[in-house]
């Protein structure tokens, strides 16, 4: 018998509702994986400790990529670190978000003409939020995190979907700059 009060929802609508519920909890409890590549990482200790206390936003550090939601890329990335970063990013479980810190991830910053570091992070992995500055102020970092939460709420933090949709494009860029993404070195083989 059909209920007169509620019209039944399609599976799609039900999924969407569950995603909304999931997003609510997700954005209020973000576990971050800190890939502290550059000097911008020094902004994290004040953000995490009593000065700004990011735990009041519900954010905490996480030790492994598989359990983390947010990947923080704090600063310049050499080709070597980029390889490891792509590994790490691909290991994270979905949905996953990326925050890029500092001008180094945006346009290369003071290392824009270096032979060793890449210039534009969103060429290789999708970035949801950039925090500008060299290094960014801790307030800016906190602001970036609240922006990310807002984006999760508005469903605009779609980087991980983009990575699936345009995977060929990202892979091509990775290969263009890196030659090969797989890591070969004597210490791991």
């Amino acid at each position: 018998m059909k209920s007169t009060k509620f019209s039944p929802m399609t599976q799609e609508q039900i999924d969407k509702k569950w995603w909304e519920i999931g997003n609510y909890f997700r954005r209020n409890s973000l576990w971050m994986l800190m890939y502290c590549t550059g000097c911008c990482a020094i902004e994290l200790p004040p953000a995490m400790t009593s000065a700004y206390d990011m735990e009041r936003l519900g954010m905490g550090p996480m030790a492994t990529p598989r359990q983390a939601d947010v990947l923080l890329v704090t600063g310049y990335l050499s080709l070597k670190t980029l390889r490891r970063l792509i590994y790490t990013y691909e290991q994270m479980s979905e949905p996953k978000y990326v925050v890029g810190f500092g001008s180094c991830t945006i346009n290369g910053g003071i290392y824009h003409d270096s032979h060793a570091v890449i210039n534009k992070l969103d060429q290789y992995i999708p970035v949801d939020v950039y925090v500008a500055g060299c290094m960014p102020n801790t307030e800016a970092v906190m602001n970036g995190f609240t922006d990310l939460m807002g984006m999760i709420k508005n469903k605009t933090a779609r980087g991980w979907l983009d990575y699936k949709e345009r995977n060929d494009w990202y892979k091509k860029n990775q290969l263009d700059s890196l030659g090969e993404v797989l890591v070969h070195d004597e210490f791991h083989e």
């Binding site: 945006i106 346009n107 824009h112 003409d113 270096s114 210039n119 534009k120």
Partner: peptide, 15 residues
């Protein structure tokens, strides 16, 4: 005599 800028320009996308 290595030119890092030329290397960077040819290998890494600029914004």
């Amino acid at each position: 005599d290595f030119d890092p800028r030329a290397y960077s320009d040819s290998h890494f996308e600029k914004r």
